[in-house]
Amino acid sequence: MERREFLKRIGLTGAVVAGSTVGALLLHNRPVLNRSRYKTLKSYRIALNSSDVQMAIAHGADLDAMVRASVSEMGGIQKFIQRGDVVVIKPNVAFDRPPELGATTRPETVKAIIQLCKEAGARKILVADNPINQPESCFYKSGVKRAAEEAGAEIVYPYPSQFEDLYIGGEVLTSTWPMFYGPFKNADKVIGVAPVKDHNLCYASMSMKNWYGLLSGSRNQFHQDIHGIISDFPHMIQPTLVILDATRVLTRNGPTGGSLSDVAEGHTVVAGVDMVAIDAYGYELLRKIQGGEGPDTLGYLEKAHARGLGNRDWRSQVWREVNV
């Protein structure tokens, strides 16, 4: 055997032996669970003075005018959205229902807000939700897909790759939870747009409950502490602006509805930054329409108020009310 071949063969076997040994030692006893640092949702809120308007209520019949009036009472859209911003709009598109049934955010409301953001110079507008029913058909039948795309926004569907574990550190969401984080990753501003709906377990689904649509995983176990989980949402996310659309109010058989007779006109749109205050107002309105059903106050409003996550006494803040 030639020396060259001898060295080559010995060297090759030696390299494989050395490689396996190094590889095995590197992998040996690595931690079973990979506990890397988890991300959190940043705050999308802008700084407001206590003398600024915290909540603006608009009544009327023209939805677009009501949205515009409420936002303008808040100080105008330019106060919240800057030129070049990437904005995420989170409607409630939980169910595969036509908009008339009041189970989802009205497409006209979504459209009006997208237009406002465009006027403020937003660079990119994303509309995202992780519905209970099949996502594509929810966005399609609720009319939100069409309205959003016509107005120049982009729908982000809850593909598996859009989800990430985020650290919440709340009362019910104590640690981390898989969340629909994709659209928020590069967002500058976040706007929540929720309808007012009756709810079988927590009495009312409004701007706070809307954020349930960011949760993934076994989220149906949170009904075991429904008020606890909803009161975690203002801790979990601080949106730039919240719109509560109380024009087509689902008054019973909620949160799904299913009949036109379950829906009543509320003639109201509310804009604001404090979700607890907004929902406190929304619940008063819902009870009025329902004829005084349900408890005087809601468990999750009490909890969130007590945790300092908002102010359920909405009248104690600076607020405006206009008719258009």
């Binding site: 709810h199 149906n220 058989n253 799904t256 299913g258």
Partner: peptide, 26 residues
């Protein structure tokens, strides 16, 4: 069933029941 067997609140079934009125009631 959690509310029946373990005194734990739940009724997700009622929440998602799509008929009007709901076939599931509490």
């Amino acid at each position: 069933c959690l509310p029946w067997a373990m005194d734990i609140p739940c009724v997700v079934c009622e929440e998602v029941c799509p008929t009007s009125p709901k076939a599931i009631f509490g």
